[in-house]
Amino acid sequence: MREMRESPQLGSLRLLVRFIILSALLSAGAAALCVLTAALAGRLSPGPAVWAAALAVPAAFGAVTALLAGRYFNRRFRRLRDSFQTIIDGDLSVRLPVEGSGAFSAAYADFNRMAEELQNVRARRDEYVNTFTHEFKTPLTAIRGFAELLQEPGFTEAEQKKYLQIIASESTQLAELANDALLLTKLETGNLPVSRTTFWLDEQVSHCLLLLEGSAREKAQTLTADIAPVEFTGSVELLPHVWNNLVGNAIKYTPNGGHIRVSLQRQGDTAVFTVADDGIGMSDEVRSHIFDRYYQADPSHTRRGIGLGLPIVHSIVSLCGGRIQVESTPGAGSTFRVLLPGAGTTEAARA
């Protein structure tokens, strides 16, 4: 049976009640002892009225103590309750004063941390909405502009082809934005069925690199790969999102002429995929948030994207039972390492 843990507030209340009862009993005992001593000394003949008066003193003391304690607890609980209601009403700026080290101070500190985190989530959500709107508006504006332009006469066939290619490219960008948002929502809500298939992971990774070679070539980057044959059992549909996002980010955040190194190795029953670059790198603060939804290290929109790529990567890797290791130094590049259980045989079995 699962053991129930008592909250600090309830524990403090129990201690206070015990203190009141104990104080009342001690006071009653002391009063009774005084009456009994006086009676034995012959100075007092205690009757019912005397005993009642003696016991009334601790009873009154206990009642007053209980009343004061009740008011104290009621005031502190009411303040906590009202603050929660303020949060529910949408004001996340409310904070409670933390004084001393009692149970209520601990509860108030926990409340403040919760409110701070909720405020951060709201800020990241608002930034995400702004970025999402901007990224959607940009291709829509381009599509509309070139579509209207093509309605005018006088364009050569080459010009028409160029404008149609731009429309197709921007349409693809829109589709990718929508697909990423939908995919992350399904991953986070658990509404995405995951099938396990045995396939050659090196072939999948090599195919993804082939698709991204053109982007690296446009920036005069050197893209090197060390891909070992690895048979793997996992999600053949979801894992390409991992490779495309990680290598794509390395290309995006590495300056022209930079170097990107990709490797795939097998360590026991674990497939190890590594992407290392000599790009702009990240600070510790940025690195601690890169897998958070709504988070963008560069909110200036100088680079296209809405910050969903790495949260998608993290969700897929977690869903597959793996983990991600990140090393980065500002100005010196980043290394992402994905470790996935499910690796099987190597090249000998392929023949």
Results as ranks from 00 to 15, higher is better:
1 M>P: 14
6 E>K: 13
12 S>V: 00
17 V>W: 13
18 R>H: 03
22 L>V: 07
24 A>M: 07
26 L>C: 12
28 A>S: 06
30 A>F: 13
32 A>Y: 08
33 L>G: 08
34 C>P: 02
35 V>Y: 01
36 L>C: 09
38 A>D: 06
42 G>A: 14
49 A>K: 03
59 A>W: 12
60 A>S: 14
61 F>G: 06
62 G>H: 01
64 V>F: 12
64 V>M: 06
65 T>R: 15
68 L>R: 15
69 A>W: 03
77 F>M: 03
78 R>G: 06
78 R>T: 11
79 R>P: 03
81 R>S: 09
81 R>L: 09
81 R>W: 08
82 D>I: 02
87 I>S: 09
87 I>A: 14
88 I>V: 15
89 D>A: 15
95 R>F: 04
96 L>P: 00
101 S>I: 01
111 F>M: 03
121 V>R: 04
121 V>N: 02
123 A>Y: 03
125 R>T: 04
125 R>K: 05
126 D>C: 05
129 V>R: 13
134 H>W: 14
134 H>D: 12
136 F>T: 06
136 F>N: 08
152 E>C: 11
157 E>D: 13
162 K>M: 06
165 Q>Y: 03
172 T>G: 10
173 Q>T: 14
183 L>Q: 09
188 E>V: 06
188 E>N: 04
190 G>P: 01
202 D>L: 07
204 Q>P: 04
204 Q>A: 13
209 L>A: 06
212 L>D: 11
212 L>G: 07
214 G>H: 08
214 G>P: 00
215 S>G: 05
217 R>A: 15
217 R>V: 05
218 E>G: 08
222 T>D: 12
224 T>I: 05
225 A>N: 02
231 E>A: 12
239 L>T: 03
240 P>E: 13
245 N>Q: 13
248 G>Q: 14
249 N>C: 05
263 S>A: 15
274 T>C: 09
282 M>Q: 05
284 D>S: 10
285 E>L: 14
286 V>H: 05
289 H>P: 00
290 I>V: 10
293 R>P: 11
295 Y>Q: 00
302 T>L: 10
303 R>Y: 11
305 G>E: 00
324 I>W: 03
329 T>G: 00
331 G>D: 10
331 G>Y: 12
334 S>Q: 08
335 T>M: 08
338 V>Q: 05
339 L>R: 07
339 L>P: 01
340 L>E: 07
341 P>R: 04
342 G>C: 04
345 T>N: 08
345 T>Y: 05
345 T>C: 11
346 T>V: 13
